[in-house]
Design a protein around this nucleic acid. Structure first.
Lengths: 248, 248
DNA sequence: CGGGTGATTGATTGTCGTCAAGCTTGGTGG
DNA sequence: CCACCAAGCTTGACGACAATCAATCACCCG
């Protein structure tokens, strides 16, 4: 079964390359824990990384492209998606600052990556990554752990799509985003992506997303100061809605 | 590029297991490949495997249990699911004869495993598995490849749930099952699971599953000789329905 | 043959999708 | 500084698809 791979294979990895002090680029939102995380381990490859910039809505790589690099998002937000022939679009995942993308998967990309906002990434050669993974058991363990976390998160999203209605999906999404951006405490969530992106991620339409947001606003669960921000006013109510898809 | 949904691999591991006349235990439906698969590598652990039997609807392990073993399904079908407090159920995956389960994930199970039919499994101690993974690069590569295939298959399921309507979901499911069981040629698909299982896997109700099957039967896309068998009469039509979730 | 389980079909409701206006916001240029 | 414009967001009216509720049917198995 072919997963409808594009034949476009131009290598975007070399584009927008700049001579940039990579060492100065520390991803935001990346908690500096003492236990080194996978992205921190990657720092060892720092000198091999190439900085690239992409502007809003620009493609970063296409489904089917050779997967020669592992990308670390320095700033901005990326969406991993599939475009269907009939116009439907599936947004599998949003990749945030500090996250990696392309760690797993085979020799070719299974998704198209597009810049949701202006984006800066560091591209590490996959060959180097594999070599390091081969020679360093601790690094390997990190990769595996990263992987199993990622797998779990994809499975969780399947659950959301399979079992939840519109408001529940939205609640799960907002809480998940709040967790990832560390906005749980401040209660203020940045929505880098537009309504259509959210809709395509949650398997709903843009209108349904709007109505669900409006409803939660009216119930004083959320505040929506502007299109790209959401303030959590009643996290308990939100968690109830999200149910098992919530971390609490 | 062709990507198989099938996380299954054919098995030779059972043949000399100590606890059971394992020569009889060759998983059915597994296409023969020459390249050694992950389950074949597992054969090296065969003396450490324990044969276990479960009857229909019996739990095999529960969500949250310590994940001390990796299970290889010798015969029968298993469902990995979550039971929600409000009664909703999410069937994440069906595990078929020859498949492994519990290879990834952390120290605890993320799903409950239940026997769909009577089931025979071999349980390998995870510690042994990890040791082998640590010492043998080839084995490790197999694990990673297995993993990335599995990840892709979960992501494909997310797509099905997020983008497809009832008949499309059913078509994707049937084709996927046909691929995995090698029934693509004969055109006859065994449905080990009941309608409710399928419904909970596809995020639909049992009535909707029934109606979708009936509709495809009336359109001469399928034949349904009995509840647990489906004959593919028009694979092209089915593939069209499944769209990008189909192998062709 | 009767009972039970699971599957199927029908009638009706409800949620979400579709279509069609408006509305906000941010950017641009006069 | 304001008018204008475009893109994206919001709201409303309506319809379609799937959920729900309720029988009825088919098939095992004792």
């Amino acid at each position: 079964m072919s997963v409808s791979f594009n034949t476009a294979c131009h290598d975007t990895a070399a584009r927008h390359s700049t001579a940039f002090p990579v060492t100065a680029l520390r991803p935001v939102n990346q908690p500096a824990t003492s236990a080194a995380s996978l992205p921190e381990h990657l720092a060892r490859l720092r000198d091999l990384g190439t900085v690239q910039r992409f502007s809003r809505n620009e493609p970063i790589f296409h489904e089917g492209d050779a997967a020669r690099h592992i990308l670390q998002i320095v700033s901005g937000t990326v969406r991993l998606c599939r475009h269907m022939p009939d116009g439907r679009r599936h947004v599998a995942e949003f990749v945030l600052a500090g996250d990696l993308c392309g760690v797993f998967g085979g020799a070719t990309q299974s998704f198209t990556a597009e810049a949701v906002t202006d984006v800066i990434v560091i591209a590490y050669p996959r060959a180097q990554f594999d070599r390091m993974s081969e020679s360093d058991p601790a690094f390997r363990a990190k990769v595996l752990s990263h992987l199993s976390t990622h797998l779990l998160s994809v499975q969780m999203h399947s659950f959301v799509l399979g079992c939840q209605n519109a408001r529940e999906r939205l609640a799960s999404f907002i809480l998940h985003l709040a967790e990832r951006t560390g906005a749980s405490r401040t209660g203020r969530v940045e929505l880098a992506m537009g309504r259509q992106d959210i809709a395509d991620h949650l398997g709903l339409t843009i209108e349904t997303i709007c109505r669900a947001i409006t409803a939660l606003k009216k119930e004083r669960v959320l505040d929506v100061p502007n299109t790209h921000q959401i303030v959590l006013r009643n996290v308990d109510a939100l968690s109830d809605l999200a149910g098992a898809a919530s971390l609490n």
